[in-house]
Simulated scan of single mutants.
Amino acid sequence: MPAPIGILGGTFDPVHNGHLRLAVELAEALELAEVRLVPSARPPHRGAPIASPGQRAKWIRVAITDEPRLRLDDRELLRRGPSYTVDTLASLRRELPDTPLCLLMGRDVMAALDKWHEWRGLFEHAHIVLVERPDTDTELPAAVADEVERRRVGDAADLRGATHGLVHVCTPPPLTISGTRIRELLAAGRSARYLLPDVVLEEIQDAGVYRREPAPA
């Protein structure tokens, strides 16, 4: 069976070092062939991204130029309608029928999983890797917790023996960086250096994406 592929979704508004380092850590820990960064066009459960789809895709592309384990997957940006993860996984499964797919998500995201569109259908197309962080102890809804316990495997190697349907819990080293904080810094005219790749920061500053307009006199 081919090596598993990781799927890391989000708005990536903007992509930053927390996203990139997490993707590399999980690629190594889970022995993934690659991790696909999948920017959402119209996230159903949060506000629309500030940066355009084209800008966010470009920033990911330039950020991962020298990292062969990471890949931009822009299918949600090209698809009309809400960016439902189950549709994305179904599309990937049609393209990769024999490859294990691993949907990577934090506990804070999984805590709202029961509100996702056809959330139980995720397990028909992929494994879920629950990424734990020391600063997050959010309780999972009962229905989600039941699915996690029923499908949970302790060894990441088990993810390579099936194409979908399992849950594995992984705790990578912590690296706390948020897109919200980066946007706030840039809007205030403060430095966001070392929080995201220099090449991405330069693109953002050149375009003035998050710059706060001065109040009228």
Rank of each mutant, 00 (worst) to 15 (best):
T65A: 15
T65P: 07
D66C: 03
D66S: 15
E67K: 08
E67S: 14
P68K: 09
R69M: 08
R71M: 06
R71F: 01
R71E: 08
R71K: 09
R71I: 00
L72F: 03
L72N: 06
D73K: 00
D73T: 00
D73C: 05
D74K: 02
D74P: 06
E76I: 03
L77A: 08
L77M: 07
L78M: 11
R79I: 10
R80Y: 03
G81A: 11
G81S: 08
G81K: 09
P82C: 02
S83K: 07
S83N: 14
Y84D: 04
T85N: 15
T85K: 05
T85Y: 11
V86K: 06
D87W: 11
D87Y: 08
D87P: 14
T88P: 05
T88L: 01
A90P: 01
A90G: 12
S91F: 13
R93K: 08
R93V: 06
R93E: 06
R94Q: 15
R94S: 13
E95K: 10
E95D: 06
P97R: 04
P97W: 05
P100C: 03
P100H: 10
L103W: 15
L103E: 07
L104N: 03
L104Q: 07
L104V: 10
L104H: 00
G106V: 03
R107W: 04
D108K: 12
D108T: 09
D108C: 12
V109H: 11
V109E: 15
M110R: 09
A111W: 11
A111V: 09
A111C: 08
L113A: 14
L113V: 15
D114L: 03
W116Y: 06
H117R: 14
H117Q: 13
H117F: 08
W119A: 11
W119Y: 12
R120P: 08
R120A: 13
G121Y: 03
G121T: 07
L122W: 01
L122E: 02
L122I: 13
F123L: 05
E124M: 00
E124V: 00
H125N: 02
H125W: 09
A126Q: 02
A126C: 10
H127Y: 07
H127F: 03
I128W: 05
I128F: 00
I128R: 01
V129E: 00
V129A: 09
V129T: 07
V129C: 10
V131F: 04
E132Q: 14
R133C: 00
R133M: 07
R133Q: 01
R133E: 09
R133W: 03
P134A: 09
P134I: 00
D135K: 05
D135T: 06
T136C: 12
D137G: 09
D137N: 13
D137M: 01
D137K: 12
T138Y: 00
T138P: 01
T138C: 06
